[in-house]
Design a protein around this nucleic acid. Structure first.
Lengths: 346, 346
DNA sequence: TTGTACGCGTTATCAT
DNA sequence: ATGATAACGCGTACAA
């Protein structure tokens, strides 16, 4: 259990002053004789000296950015986090990852903690609450970028999916196949993703003059098993849907599990489209038609935004970058057929 | 862009000394009059003062532990990370998450960085390299716990799965079903998980006096598409296997994808068992028989170990905790049948 | 080119 | 109960 050598230890061991050692470490900050530098480098190596980040960030700034996602079990966020970490490395930034578990109170604590750590920037998927905390961080000059979701009236950069278009496209696909009773399971209407996907769905319907039926639309929470419940009530409908769009990434698994427990055949009885960028969606049977969120793109853009503000001027207007999601038609969606499983009801 | 208030700002605003403010913040470190404390608390609230972690950790220690996993795209690690973060919160610890991408060089950098940050402890899935760095950290008195994998001859706590038993159990299951040509795709033999799972497989075979055939065993890397390649060469065998165990968590998806691209029917042509704790394994068709790693348990134990060393005496011998994995039989494994798809070859 | 000395924000020690 | 002040480890004007 040896004590960490300090810059002073190195200095005295090398027979120079701390200033010289400092200049050797952060090359370019001042002149150092080649010979002296070699000597210093050597002793640094020998003693295994490493400048402590804490002391360093006390005088200079931090090179750590905070990354806030809801939870890592959602493959969408897992991949997002993975990409952000990777990209950050390229930019010489550390990443402090935190998860809100979709809990506003937990998010509060996280934001406090990030402030304590004096992070240089934040990339987050906000719960929607804690506007005061966001304002405080903003006020402190911390560059912030929201990913996936946004909060209204907050001057913060946003990188998002083109939700309306994506949802509309998915709905159109089903309409093209002849479906009219199309169900939608989306996120909470308080979130931008939840609301906008319902909006896109609605527009697609309107364009074909098909009535919007509220009993077919479920805006459910991300946590819990609400996706399964929604499927349940949809199937219990007197006139069940012939197609289903699961636009709530976090609830895709639950919805599918519930479907698997019934006698419903996909796609014969029910065509299904899900919002998910998960490799498993093509491994299930039948392979699922999906709206694939451009996860990597979101990560890249988000990091670019904070990174830019980190270096550049902060006077810029908040920017919003919308990335289109790709619709991938697979085998879970087919032309509407007379619904055999509805027979028993009649 | 306001500057953060310091403890001095609070002190002068409240008309007291910094010492008092400090004592108010870390209650219990010294006597403070109730009246004074209220006054100080009030100004702290008013100014929005928060003690900076950097300055704090300069004099005291850190409350941050480093968590190193290979990558977040592997659901196993994603879940592990999620649980560790959660448990850590309960213990009042922050988590600094880093990913090695299975790259030894990257791991080196990460370990350096963790040292720079003066982390209070480390939980890691080591690549197997950088023994010198681990030794240094150990030497510095940093409590370390390895999860899932271990490195020989390093006095470090380990939380692991009972690999030999798990693998043996999976193999036994297939043997019970009458299979004799059982293929195994495992991790690199340089990793404990890779080697031990082959070992368990081997023991099961020996117990039934069935010859071990090396052409049926593939120890492949975690990264890349080696799992698919392995499946390819197994199917190209003159005498293909009738059963397959994919014991390489990271390669399960690739192996299954490759399988899906062929005309092989599961389980009719090939019984399949995979090591995976992923919800999707029961959503595919047929639902897969799996060896389910007790991910949450691993996380809990790992945190307990570092947490214990953090507070307690460091003199203890390194401990190893082995957690059994649960075998879940589903529909992808059946009694061996005459192999119809082998007919064309004969 | 090199060294000295101070500041960063906090905690802890010792007087008062 | 409170206050002054010395660390903690590093960066950096400024002096030599």
């Amino acid at each position: 259990m040896r004590k960490q050598p300090t810059i002073r230890d190195v200095a005295s061991a090398a027979g120079v002053s701390v200033a010289v050692v400092s200049r050797v470490i952060n090359e370019g900050t001042g002149p150092v004789a080649a010979k002296t530098r070699d000597k210093v480098m050597e002793t640094i190596e020998e003693l295994g000296f490493r400048p402590r980040a804490a002391a360093r960030s006390l005088v200079s700034g931090t090179t750590t950015i905070g990354l806030i996602v809801t939870d890592l079990e959602n493959p969408f966020f897992a991949r997002l986090a993975d990409r952000v970490v990777w990209e950050a490395r390229g930019a010489g930034l550390q990443v402090q990852l935190m998860t809100t578990q979709e809990d506003a109170q937990l998010e509060r604590e996280i934001l406090d903690r990030l402030q304590d750590r004096s992070v240089a920037g934040i990339i987050a998927t906000p719960t929607g609450a804690n506007v005061d905390k966001w304002h405080r961080l903003l006020d402190l000059g911390v560059p912030i970028t929201f990913v996936d979701r946004a909060i209204r009236d907050l001057p913060i950069d946003v990188v998002r999916i083109e939700n309306v278009t994506s949802s509309q496209e998915a709905t159109d696909h089903l309409l093209d196949l002849g479906h009219e009773r199309i169900a939608l399971i989306s996120g909470p209407s308080t979130t931008t993703t939840g609301a906008e996907r319902v909006d896109g769905y609605r527009r697609a319907l309107e364009a074909r003059a098909i009535a919007y039926r509220s009993e077919l639309v479920h805006s459910v929470r991300f946590r819990g098993d609400a996706g399964a419940d929604a499927v349940g009530s949809l199937l219990d409908l007197r006139e069940p849907p012939t197609a289903l769009i699961v636009a709530n990434t976090a609830q895709v698994r639950n919805a599918l599990r519930r479907l698997a427990q019934t006698r419903i055949a996909i796609p014969e009885d029910l065509s299904v489209v899900v919002f998910d960028d998960n490799p498993w969606t093509e491994l299930v049977s039948p392979p699922l038609s999906v709206v694939r969120p451009p996860t990597s793109m979101l990560a890249v853009h988000a990091l670019e935004l904070v990174s830019a503000r980190l270096r550049g001027r902060v006077t810029d207007e908040p920017r919003t970058i919308s990335v289109p999601a790709e619709f991938v038609a697979r085998s879970s969606t087919v032309t509407i057929t007379p619904n055999p499983w509805r027979a028993p009801h009649s």
